Computed example of a mutant assay.
Amino acid sequence: MILDTWFWAGTAVGVLSLLVCLAMTALRTHPADASIVSVAAVELFLLVYGVVGAFRQLGGDPLNGPVWEFWGYVLTALVVPVIAVLWAASDRTRWANLVLAVVGPTVVVMLHRMQVIWYGQW
Rank of each mutant, 00 (worst) to 15 (best):
L78W: 02
W122I: 05
L46E: 04
A89G: 05
V107T: 11
R92P: 08
T76R: 10
F45R: 04
L86C: 07
E43V: 02
L100K: 04
W95F: 10
V116G: 03
V20T: 13
A12E: 01
F45C: 09
P105W: 01
H30E: 08
Q121A: 12
R56D: 15
V108A: 07
R113G: 10
D61P: 03
V116E: 11
A84H: 12
V102L: 14
S90P: 00
W122N: 11
V51G: 03
M24R: 11
L75Q: 07
V99R: 09
W95C: 00
W6P: 00
V107W: 02
S90C: 04
S38D: 02
V99C: 09
F55M: 12
A41I: 08
Q121G: 11
P81M: 14
R56S: 13
D91A: 06
L111N: 06
W68V: 11
W71P: 08
Y119V: 01
E69I: 12
D4N: 09
A96S: 14
V79P: 00
T11F: 05
T25K: 04
R94D: 07
G65H: 08
A77F: 09
Y49F: 14
R28C: 12
S90D: 03
D91H: 14
D4W: 03
A40L: 13
V37M: 07
V116H: 13
T76E: 06
M114D: 05
L44I: 11
V82L: 13
G50V: 10
S38H: 08
V79G: 10
I83S: 06
A77Q: 08
V74F: 09
A26Y: 03
A89E: 13
Y73F: 15
G59D: 13
V82S: 07
S38K: 09
P62T: 15
W118V: 02
I2L: 02
V108S: 03
V74Q: 15
L27Y: 03
M1Q: 04
V109S: 11
V82K: 05
Y119I: 04
V15E: 11
V109E: 04
I117W: 06
L58Y: 14
T93V: 08
I2R: 10
A54W: 11
F70L: 11
